[in-house]
Amino acid sequence: MLEIRDLSASIDGKPILNGIDLVVPTGEVHAIMGPNGSGKSTLSYILAGREGYAVTGGEVRLDGVDLLTLAPEERAAAGLFLAFQYPVELPGVGNANFLRTALNATRRARGESDLDAVQFLKLARAALRDLAMADDMLKRNVNVGFSGGEKKRNEVLQMAILKPKFAILDETDSGLDIDALKIVAGGVNALRGPGFSALVITHYQRLLDHIVPDRVHVLAGGRILRSGGPELARALEESGYAALGLEAVSEDTAAMAAP
């Protein structure tokens, strides 16, 4: 279970998040929607522990563990996974080496033994098949020369292999065609179950047609302004944020939120 209590944060002294309260119980998938600059990506980066943000108040717990005091790798070991909106390219780092290092680091943190190269390859190939990805994906350097869609699928591949307890998908649908979208959604749905929960950040209903959320939250001006069932997302898609009385997002907040 992920619990966010009264979380506030700023960049260079400018407030971006202004008291977020959000609980995602184990086994549930929640969606966060909101206009540009509402603080969605900031929230995901703060959960994952990126530098450059000052948490000015509140707390975040994953199954009772205080995430905010942990280094990014310790959060990953605790079971948190962020699918990046803009996956980073790592020239010279092979995908297979990267994945195995990440997996074994996580396993070690959980008190499990390392997988050897053969065991790892077996696992990785199976995950590739499930996501309809070619084996040579493993030989390529991480995200280098990948198309936008390939990068997003690579994020989901990593998630499938690392098997986190809690995943944040930050606009994983952007830049995907409909076939890729279905594959990505399939990857997320395959993990759904009693030991997994997720926060899906998106602008569009179409992803939520494939990953049906248990709850939908609307984030604006650094706060959760509205929560509801899947029907809230459809209402937003049809009539926009303004119709829901959410136009009162200040220009300031919108302009500075992008990191």
């Binding site: 994952a48 996974f81 020239p91 010279g92 290092t101 943190a109």
Partner: peptide, 25 residues
């Protein structure tokens, strides 16, 4: 790059070594 590696659970020292090796690869 360092954050991306750490977000995948790779400790900082190992992540740095990985990036330096990649630089030399």
């Amino acid at each position: 790059q360092l954050f991306y590696l750490r977000a995948r659970g790779i400790p900082e020292a190992a992540a740095r070594a990985m990036l330096v090796r990649a630089f030399l690869a």
